[in-house]
């Protein structure tokens, strides 16, 4: 008896070691270019283009200094935060409501409607540029955040609607109905019962919508000028007509990724929460 238990434990340890090694390999694959970007951001121009590539070097902050003093990254950072946070919130609220409607109610033309919402994402953004530019000038919102907020909300909706719909219909209606029998209205039932169970889906969706809006370049560069310029536009300026300022580009990449990475770390808690709540659905 004791022998098989020890055997079992040893096998488990070996399996765990294997999984750990695989996990490390996967992490290394995804992390190395990120590491390289972070490292290159701190390299001064002289060091960054040497061959063989340098792994140990004295870090320099000149790229970041240039970003914030000459390239105007401070203002752009602020603009990005304002525009993207607002549009993510709007998309999450409107989209989850729509997803709930599609998941819980019997509507005629439900599938067509869902596909229409998805088709927003199918349009190459190029075609929207000039009409949006014209609208922007006509309404006087060129180089203000409002048009971008509206557009990013629009492009975030397909994600929210389609992802949340799947997560909502994974939760059987009986759960809500039980709460409603206990005396809750439908809204309260949703808020107290369904929403906690939706946390993993909400967390994942919020990260995705935020991230897409945060990194959007084409419309941001053409619909803004000095006032409402966002970070991707600043990052792109590392590409000179006949050269590429790699150090500056990496520094911009770092500045742009840090807020989103922080957001993801905050969301990890909600992603995991599903583990304990899964027990509820039995």
């Amino acid at each position: 008896m004791a022998a098989t238990l020890a055997e079992h434990r040893a096998r488990q340890r070996r399996a765990a070691a294997l999984y750990w090694a695989l996990a490390l390999l996967a992490t290394a694959f995804f992390f190395f270019p990120v590491f390289w970007m972070f490292a290159s951001a701190f390299k001064s121009d002289a060091v960054s283009s040497t061959y063989p590539p340098v792994f140990l070097f004295a870090p320099s902050l000149e790229n970041f200094a240039h970003l914030f003093t000459e390239a105007g990254a401070g203002r752009a950072l602020w603009n990005s935060f304002f525009i993207v946070t607002l549009s993510t919130l709007l998309a999450m609220i409107a989209g989850t409501m729509a997803a709930y409607a599609l998941a819980r109610f019997d509507l005629r033309g439900k599938n067509t409607l869902a596909l229409e919402i998805l088709s927003i994402r199918m349009l190459p953004p190029i075609v929207s540029v000039i009409p949006l530019f014209m609208i922007a000038r006509w309404l006087g919102v060129f180089d203000t955040p409002w048009l971008l907020i509206a557009v990013y909300t629009l492009t975030g909706l397909p994600f929210v609607v389609w992802i949340m719909r799947v997560f909502i219909q994974d939760i059987p209606q009986s759960v809500e109905e039980a709460a409603m029998i206990d005396g809750c209205g439908r809204i309260e039932a949703f808020w107290r019962v369904t929403l906690p169970l939706l946390l993993p889906g909400l967390a994942a969706t919020m990260v995705i919508v935020f991230m897409f809006a945060w990194n959007e370049f084409l419309l941001a560069s053409l619909l803004t000028s000095s006032e409402a310029k966002t970070l991707p536009v600043i990052a792109a300026n590392a590409i000179k007509p006949k050269a590429i300022a790699f150090g500056l580009a990496c520094a911009a990449g770092v500045v742009m990724s840090v807020p989103v990475i922080v957001l993801v770390l905050m969301m990890q808690k909600y992603l995991v929460q599903g583990l304990t709540l899964g027990a509820v659905k039995g």
């Binding site: 530019f133 560069s221 000095s226 792109a236 590409i239 000179k240």
Partner: peptide, 20 residues
């Protein structure tokens, strides 16, 4: 405002052709 090369051309075309 500084612009990278291709965006510069695009912006010039769009702004000027629309009479902005």
């Amino acid at each position: 405002e500084a612009n990278p090369y291709e965006s510069h051309y695009e912006k010039m075309l769009i702004e000027l052709s629309q009479g902005s």
